[in-house]
């Protein structure tokens, strides 16, 4: 009963934190609308919204780590313990992947932020009263060129390279964990698993190689002898 209450309390806490983040996000968006209509211009809520989104995902990752991870990592018992472990591992890797994907998207956002700042400076220097569509287009093109330059510099940085490597690794780990669950399911219904097929492919590959080698040694027909004439 106390365990049940504890679970309910935890679920409430998670829901409350999520609701808080969503409320902040919505509040920031709606507050900006009156500002958008004013002659002061549109406040870029993008940054605020992006920051709040990041915060929301960070909070859920933290909640997962603090509240759920320990539950998921409790030792499994019983006949189905292996399957339980596989599911736990997949959930854990999925959470890790989401966190890594967020970090990666943050990295990709860095050059956008830098080039947007430069665009702001550029626009603030122009006399916007008499700006023609062509001049606006030029500003846009200049921003694109700057964005390209920022990306070309940033994408070769150690920070990005390591982030990309970590994301790929995380993606692969989740894929492995997820595929393990599918394989367990396929085994139950008698369908050959991917691992079993890989072993078969390996055997086929080795046999084909040996066969081709023997054909060449014995002067038999090789693939090069085929002709459509």
């Amino acid at each position: 009963m106390s365990a049940q209450n504890s679970t309910i309390t935890h679920t409430q806490m998670v829901f409350e934190e999520w609701a808080q983040s969503a409320n902040q996000f919505w509040g920031a968006m709606t507050q900006s609308w009156p500002a958008a209509g004013s002659t002061d211009g549109l406040s870029t809520t993008l940054d605020t919204a992006w920051d709040i989104y990041q915060e929301a995902v960070r909070i859920s990752a933290k909640i997962f780590q603090d509240e759920f991870q320990s539950v998921i990592n409790t030792p499994k018992i019983g006949l189905t313990r292996t399957y339980q472990e596989n599911v736990s591992r997949a959930v854990e890797k999925f959470s890790a992947l989401n966190a890594k994907l967020l970090e990666f998207s943050q990295l990709l956002h860095v050059p956008v932020k830098k080039s947007a700042t430069a665009l702001q400076d550029n626009l603030s220097q122009l006399n916007l009263e008499g700006l023609s569509p062509e001049e606006l287009k030029n500003c846009y093109r200049k921003w694109l060129k700057d964005l390209e330059k920022q990306y070309l510099e940033f994408l070769r940085s150690p920070e990005f390279c390591q982030g990309m490597g970590a994301t790929l690794l995380s993606m692969g780990e989740f894929t492995e964990a997820r595929d393990q669950i599918f394989q367990d399911m396929m085994k139950m219904v008698g369908v050959p698993t991917e691992k079993e097929m890989d072993e078969l492919y390996r055997d086929m590959y080795e046999m084909k190689k040996r066969l081709k080698k023997l054909e060449k040694m014995n002067g038999g027909e090789t693939p090069a002898d085929q002709s459509n004439d």
Partner: peptide, 15 residues
Amino acid sequence: MQRVPTHLGFPLLTE
């Protein structure tokens, strides 16, 4: 907070 002046945007867009 970053601001982008766009009070000319809508007339230009119509044109």
